[in-house]
Computed example of a mutant assay.
Amino acid sequence: MNKIIIGDHLVKSFGEGDEKHNVLSEVTVEIKEGEFVAVMGPSGSGKSTLMFALSGMDSVDGGNVFFDGKNLSAVEEKELSDIRRTKMGFVFQQPTMLKNLNILDNIIFPSMRDNRKNVANILEKARVLMKRVGIEELESRDITQVSGGQLQRAGICRALMNNPKIIFGDEPTGALNSKSAQEIMDIFSEINASGTAIMLVTHDAKVAARTERVMFMRDGKIVSELKLPKFVGTDIDARVEEVTAKMREIGI
């Protein structure tokens, strides 16, 4: 598989002088097309900062990020914004939705910028995605009239609208109960099986166990990795034990 993202010796610091703190310390990472990756580590280890750097949502102080062969560190902000909007999808712990729009309109809103003449096609695609994730009956609901799990499904639909090459998820199940979290991970697995790469930042060993490669971070560095076979739906307990055993081994 081709490499879709390369982070080459990434450095990111916050603060000045004696208060300066390296959040990323010469981190090098690669993600291949169609790969399903998790990043774990204690709070402050740099895992979210790494995701923001690789997605071009935040700049780095040193090193380069290459996405689909293009150096994101060298492009203008407008082009970078276009790349994020058209080739990447984002799912966060708390979906950012507009309160004055219903669920369907929130899903299609980012896609309308470049496709105002194709509203019918956009609506059709959104409804197909909503049916795929089981929320087709909620399109007219306000965002306050649905559960957290349903709102997260809407966020996933929005992330998929432009057929992204990769989806970035920052604690996408962190605010959900265990049943909803499992359902969201089932959706991510289906998305990945269709060929979309996924990178998830998580504290949850059960979430990480559903992926195929887990990167463990500590003090701004990737200190270890764990490779897992493709999840088949029946071996979750053994996979969770592998992840937690690795965490104990490296002391995180």
Results as ranks from 00 to 15, higher is better:
D8S: 11
S13N: 08
K20F: 07
V29I: 14
E30Y: 08
I31K: 06
K32F: 10
G34M: 12
E35L: 06
V39C: 07
M40D: 00
G44R: 03
S45P: 07
S48A: 09
A53V: 11
L54F: 03
V60A: 02
V75H: 06
E79N: 10
R85G: 14
T86N: 14
F90D: 09
L98S: 06
N100K: 10
N102S: 00
L104M: 05
N106P: 07
I107K: 07
F109L: 11
P110D: 02
S111F: 02
N115R: 15
N115M: 07
N118G: 12
A120I: 08
N121D: 14
I122L: 15
E124S: 14
A126C: 10
V133C: 01
E136D: 11
R141Y: 12
T144I: 01
Q145L: 13
V146P: 10
V146M: 08
Q150W: 04
L151I: 08
L160A: 03
K165L: 05
I166C: 04
I166L: 09
I167F: 03
G169P: 13
G169S: 14
D170V: 11
N177V: 04
K179Q: 15
S180C: 12
A181N: 01
Q182I: 05
E183A: 12
M185G: 07
D186L: 05
S189E: 10
A197Y: 04
A197P: 01
V207T: 01
A208G: 05
V214N: 06
V214Y: 05
D219S: 11
I222N: 06
I222D: 13
L226E: 02
V232S: 15
V232E: 15
R239H: 00
E241C: 00
E241P: 01
A245I: 06
